[in-house]
């Protein structure tokens, strides 16, 4: 980028320099990981019927907010996506769009048999496997998984972020080291253009 002559300087360069200075210090890495792991806000995108158990996780029984997780409406304020069950071809577009709107560092949990290998719908003509759409961190077996299983997934994800320094690596390098990014092979939203 060309150096600007404006008095405020180039904001991009300034931000990069500030990030390098701040993250260069060792304790700040830990702070980033710690803070991210205790503010995993799942976006409120319900793909399928596991949403009943997702709701139960944030109900009085398990009380998901004790993990610092609060389901939130706008994807721009969230950093966790929980794929609640089957992703159909129509929904895959929404999943990808929501994922792309979320700010980094962001994480994904695939919940239920349908989100892993199709479950009961493994040979259905209308489903997509979510790991073909977005990179998944944690897989939960069950149909549907119990709310405690989802709580365990959140706890496991928190520990993973802290032990593998996922969030700080992501902020420093622009992508995390442990998972390959996923680019969908087919055009997920192609149908939308057709219908308009």
């Amino acid at each position: 980028m060309q150096e600007g002559k404006a008095y405020v300087g180039n904001l991009d360069v300034t931000a990069k320099r500030a990030r390098d200075i701040l993250l260069g210090k060792v304790p700040l890495d830990k702070v980033v990981d710690w803070a991210t792991s205790f503010s995993l806000w799942p976006v409120h995108l319900t793909t399928s019927c596991c949403s009943t158990e997702f709701a139960a996780t944030f109900s009085p029984r398990v009380d998901g907010e004790q993990f610092g997780a609060l389901p939130w409406v706008g994807p721009r304020q969230t950093n966790l996506i929980i794929i609640e069950g089957t992703v159909t071809k129509k929904m895959a577009c929404a999943v990808r769009l929501t994922w792309e709107q979320m700010p980094a560092p962001k994480f994904a949990i695939a919940m239920g048999a349908c989100a892993l290998d199709g479950g009961l719908f493994y040979n259905s003509y209308n489903i997509v496997k979510p790991w073909q759409v977005i990179p998944i961190d944690i897989y939960l077996p069950g149909c549907p998984p119990r709310p405690e299983t989802l709580a365990r997934a959140i706890v496991t994800l928190q520990r993973k972020i802290r032990s593998k320094k996922v969030a700080s690596t992501w902020v420093r390098e622009g992508w995390r080291g442990d998972i390959e990014p996923v680019i969908p092979k087919e055009d997920l939203c192609g149908w939308a253009a057709k219908s308009i």
């Binding site: 944690i138 897989y139 077996p141 069950g142 998984p145 119990r146 405690e148 299983t149 365990r152």
Partner: peptide
């Protein structure tokens, strides 16, 4: 018991 999670698909 039912609350066991996995980090990759092959383990399952």
């Amino acid at each position: 018991y039912h609350d066991i999670v996995y980090e990759n698909l092959a383990e399952m």
